[in-house]
Amino acid sequence: MSYAIQAEGLVKRYREHTALAGVDLSVPAGSIAGLLGPNGAGKTTAVRILATLLRLDGGQASVGGFDVSRQPLRVREIIGLTGQYAALDEEMTGLENLALIGRLLDMNRRSARARAEELLEQFELSDAGGRPAKGYSGGMRRRLDLAASLVGRPQVLFLDEPTTGLDPHSRNQVWSMVRSLADEGVTVLLTTQYLEEADRLADRITVIDQGRVVAEGRADELKRRTGGQSLQVRTSLPADLDTVAGILTDLVGRAPHRDEESNLLTVPVEDPVVLSTLVRRLDAAGVVADELALRLPSLDDVFLALTGRTTGPEEITEAPVKEGNLA
């Protein structure tokens, strides 16, 4: 497998404070990697090192096969960066903002403008393209900022907390844009404090805390690692609750939690195989279930288990509204 981003033992120190204490990271080309951690975990520092904005104090890293310390210019030719704060010229129009980047990438006036228009179209900003960026909504700014990092058609894209502070609708837009970029073969490294975001977008997640990697893997692997899967059955008829509870107790060896109001039975399981047995048993008993799910713990649970902390109260109040089930 070819890796678009490879980092070994990244270390970054600021006077007495160690921002990164040996972070390893490998991101396969064309995939989306999530760097998950609370405020101050070192996510932004890692991205800034990989994007050649910061020099590293230890370890090594390469992006697209180019060493970030020795070939920073080559790295900059293939990357795009969207920082935490929209890096826009407020007085300039959306079009001018994008065209400036094109000009700096050595496009002539006409192609810089054409590329800018193409991106405005792609990011549903065509109508606003002629207006100064200061009048844009939060979601529009974010989209324009994202577009700006794509002017040079980067192979590797760094997104530092791309949806922080966005409303759910804008966040979904950004997500689908990131996904379609990955579909086109762009490698994406995104940082987030939103567990849901990492869960939804990233092929693989690296959890960092206090400058160290505390876990790495696919979202479901991480969830499984903390154990605690549960089986959920929702019956169509309240009358069936007792029958199903009996079957579950028989299968798992313990009585399920009953939610009479929503006809929901929940029981912790160790072995996911029980699901198929359950289906057969329900069928044999003639019970109709509206919902049958093996529920993995949420990444919130994982994060708590890994770091001994939740993501912190201020992130929770800011966190996007959960849509649907994580399972």
Partner: peptide, 11 residues
């Protein structure tokens, strides 16, 4: 404002 970061990420 971070505008410099954008510039510095360009070749």
């Amino acid at each position: 404002k971070g505008v410099f970061d954008r510039f510095r990420s360009l070749p």
